[in-house]
């Protein structure tokens, strides 16, 4: 507690870094995955390459991915851009499958009924498919949120600042309080963002409580 009160401002700054490095890739992953998942659900030919590709991508461990991504996009490995790009890739890898399952779960009859009522394709997507896919989509988004927040910390070993810095600093200098603070805060951030997603889901989909993971 003593350590924490003396280092409050550092911890605060790291927390902000952590939030940015978590929220940006989550948002980007949603933007990329929803259309890709829709494609995978609607077009058989797109499905296999998309799901296989993202599945293999997900198998690559995080630290190596950071190191491989950096030279590919031409930024230093410690740059926030590296972390954001790599974590976006992970988010996409998880969410594309979730989104494909979600859109695949919309009953065909419902879509036919929507067509019969005169929805244009675009309107059908926004008013029928997306809302009905929502609950399943939300449950895989929750997985992405929690694992992204946790993965951000790995960037600390290559020098990208986040709550993970409390682990590396704490380990180098032998301060247990630093590591414990980092652990607790990371878990708290993960659950807080998860709670926000669940809440947003309830507001957006009042007809159904979120599907629990």
């Amino acid at each position: 507690m003593n350590w924490l009160s003396q280092n409050l401002h550092i911890v605060g700054a790291l927390l902000v870094d952590h939030l940015v490095l978590s929220i940006v890739p989550i948002a980007l992953a949603i933007l990329v995955s929803v259309p890709l998942g829709w494609l995978a659900a609607r077009y058989r030919r797109a499905r296999t390459p998309l799901l296989t590709g993202t599945g293999l991508l997900y198998a690559i461990p995080s630290l190596p991915l950071f190191i491989i991504v950096a030279p590919l996009i031409g930024v230093p490995v410690r740059s926030p851009v590296t972390i954001v790009v790599a974590l976006t890739l992970y988010g996409v890898a998880l969410l594309v499958r979730g989104a494909a399952d979600a859109f695949g779960s919309v009953p065909r009859e419902t879509m036919l009924a929507a067509d019969a009522m005169g929805h244009a394709a675009w309107a059908r997507f926004w008013r029928v498919e997306l809302p009905l896919a929502g609950p399943v989509l939300l449950s895989s988004l929750r997985v992405v949120v929690v694992s992204t927040v946790s993965l951000v910390t790995v960037g600390a070993v290559v020098g990208a600042s986040s709550l993970g810095t409390l682990f590396t600093d704490g380990f180098q200098r032998g301060i247990e309080a630093s590591i414990l603070t980092g652990l607790v805060l990371t878990v708290v951030v993960a659950f807080a963002l998860d709670a926000i997603v669940v809440l947003a889901g309830r507001l957006a989909m009042p007809w159904r409580r979120a599907v629990a993971t």
């Binding site: 910390t153 709550l163 682990f167 652990l183």
Partner: peptide, 19 residues
């Protein structure tokens, strides 16, 4: 399982390492 996903692996490694 849902709790474990939230635990940062690096945090676990470093605290075990210190201890």
């Amino acid at each position: 399982t849902s709790g474990a996903r939230a635990i940062p692996t690096l945090g676990l490694l470093t605290i075990f390492g210190l201890l």
